[in-house]
């Protein structure tokens, strides 16, 4: 409780009851010169109470922050395809260090065994990570430059821990002998979530024209 203060009373003579109030400035003190700054938390709360629009804005900002900082499962799956695109693609004149780094980055993208189905070539088999890596490395050496891009990704999650993706794969490149490659295919892919990471478990090249 604040005692009444008469004119001319000094600051030290202000008496309060209760220990908690000792450090709290009185309304008089604040009014006298604003020497104690208002608490920001309290002022924000007051502002929110006064202007509900600020609360809405803060809520939107919070949601956006969560969305940006915590990517959705769909974003994680897309990132996996971007990773595969990066390790397969090759710039002209790629140095050996980049080649070695990319070779190393292939392994963690795939499940222990990945199924590959290409009906046009009558291929339907499981390949280990090591086999996939060696095929990719061998394939890349055939090209002076190579670009693999994935577009039109349609992602579904039929069951927890499984993602099914239908996409368009575009493979463009220049073969060492000078010939150019430009292939576009529809591909169905399955990814499995293992230890929190989405890994490629199957690829099937859709046969649109069956001879």
């Amino acid at each position: 409780m604040v005692k009444t203060i008469s004119q001319g009373q000094t600051r030290s003579s202000i008496q309060t009851s209760g220990q908690d109030n000792l450090s709290r400035p009185t309304s008089r003190q604040i009014g006298q010169g604003g020497r104690t700054p208002p608490r920001s938390g309290l002022s924000l709360l007051a502002a929110v109470k006064k202007h509900p629009a600020i609360a809405v804005l803060l809520f939107i900002l919070g949601v956006l922050t969560v969305l940006i900082l915590l990517p959705s499962e769909e974003k994680k799956v897309r990132k996996q395809f971007k990773g595969l695109s990066n390790v397969v693609s090759k710039e002209p004149g790629e140095n050996v260090f980049t080649t070695a780094r990319k070779a190393k980055e292939i392994v963690p993208l795939f499940d222990e065994n990945c199924e590959l189905i290409t009906p046009a070539d009558s291929v339907s088999a499981y390949f280990s990570r090591g086999e996939i890596t060696s095929y990719v490395i061998r394939g890349r050496t055939q090209f002076s430059d190579l670009s693999l891009t994935f577009v039109d990704l349609s992602i579904t999650f039929p069951e927890p821990g499984t993602a099914k993706v239908v996409l368009t794969a575009k493979l463009k490149g220049k073969i060492a002998n000078g010939d150019r490659l430009d292939e576009t295919r529809e591909v169905k892919s399955t990814l499995k979530k293992i230890k929190g990471k989405w890994l490629f478990a199957a690829f099937e090249v859709v046969e649109v024209l069956k001879k």
């Binding site: 039109d152 996409l167 368009t168 576009t184 529809e186 859709v206 649109v208 024209l209």
Partner: peptide, 12 residues
């Protein structure tokens, strides 16, 4: 004929 995705077509 839709070859892939929404935009890659073949005329046959």
């Amino acid at each position: 004929v839709r070859l892939a995705g929404h935009s890659v077509m073949l005329l046959k």
